[in-house]
């Protein structure tokens, strides 16, 4: 894979319905039926509770993961605390979210309103909180990020798409750094009706519980980072529809089979990348490749972590 547009991962944060040790153990899929919700209580460590009023769960997950990544970047990472406080670093920071389905709960709340009460009595607030970029809009306001902001929606390729968009914005000079990640939530109404979220027939993940969460990485252009990157994890995305996984010899493949750790849902690629990032950050010398595919034509993208 070409690495001209590789991103250096300087910090990360996440929240997941299976907790902060999501990838450490094997999920007991037979005993954990149904849907599992992520706990965002700790968001008040970063923001006064009053500022979170009316913020939907989807955006809370995104905000918590983003705050954790920024906090890690500020604690011995590339950003000093003062950088975050005087907003200088935030002015040239991009924010890119990948999401398969967006803010599902408020979306369905709005549709419920139309169906139950008619268009004239539906909730305007539910509508404004149902647009595709509601998470990006609310989180950039909360964090004070003033750079370019994008939401990429590509089903299970949403994270790969977000990383591609972030690499493009950084490489073209539109931002100095980016928070890039993925967020998706579950809702019983949606998982009941939406064909996209049903596990494919004969899928090994058929009996896995639905899970949700958010992953954010604080990234800079690897080529632009001053000094020796050492074992700083780096990311690169390769898009290909050939059906082959492009992996260097000896690379470790983190694929869809790792859903048995995370549960079923569109976050698998982002979680696989995060697992690889933390391994490299912990001293692993392996190269990891994290493939995913989506769409009726089986489009593919591989995120390589090295």
């Amino acid at each position: 894979m070409a690495h001209e547009n590789a991103l250096a991962v300087r910090a990360w944060g996440f929240v997941h319905s299976l907790g902060q040790d999501v990838w450490k153990g094997r999920l007991s899929c037979k005993s954990a039926q149904g849907a599992l919700r992520a706990d965002t209580e700790n968001l008040t460590d970063f923001v006064p509770k009053k500022n979170l009023r009316r913020m939907p769960h989807y955006a809370r997950m995104a905000a918590l993961a983003a705050f954790r990544a920024l906090s890690m970047a500020g604690e011995g990472g590339p950003l000093g605390r003062s950088d975050l406080q005087d907003a200088g670093a935030l002015r040239n920071m991009a924010f890119v979210i990948g999401t398969a389905y967006g803010c599902v709960q408020t979306n369905l709340d709005f549709l419920d309103g139309i169906i139950e009460s008619g268009p004239g009595l539906s909730s305007p607030s539910a509508f404004s909180h149902a647009v595709g970029n509601v998470g990006a809009g609310l989180v950039t306001s909360l964090l004070g990020i003033e750079g370019p902001c994008s939401t990429v929606m590509l089903f299970d390729l949403s994270f790969a798409g977000a990383v591609t968009a972030a690499a493009s914005l950084l490489g073209a000079g539109h931002a100095d750094a980016a928070l890039v990640g993925a967020v998706d939530e579950i809702d019983a109404r949606f998982s009941g009706c939406c064909p996209q979220i049903l596990p494919a027939e004969n899928s090994s993940s058929e009996s896995l519980p639905l899970t949700e969460g958010a992953v954010f990485l604080y990234v800079e252009r690897a080529a632009g980072v001053c000094g020796n990157l050492g074992r700083t994890p780096r990311l690169s995305v390769c898009w290909n529809d050939s059906g082959r996984i492009l992996a260097p010899a000896g690379a470790v493949v983190f694929g869809q089979e790792r859903e048995v750790l995370y549960g079923h849902g569109p976050l698998t690629q982002a979680l696989n990348v995060l697992a690889a990032v933390t391994r490299i950050g912990g001293g692993s010398t392996n190269v990891f490749v994290c493939p995913a595919q989506a769409g009726s034509g089986g489009r593919r993208a591989v995120v390589e972590v090295f």
Partner: peptide, 29 residues
């Protein structure tokens, strides 16, 4: 066979799609 992105940035989506397309070219992707 190259990168595929669907951008959903509310009413700036169309402009951002063109801007991201320009950035994809600028970065040689």
């Amino acid at each position: 066979g190259g990168p595929r992105l669907t951008v959903s940035n509310a009413c700036t989506s169309g402009a951002d799609a063109v801007g991201l397309g320009l950035s994809l070219l600028a970065t040689g992707q």
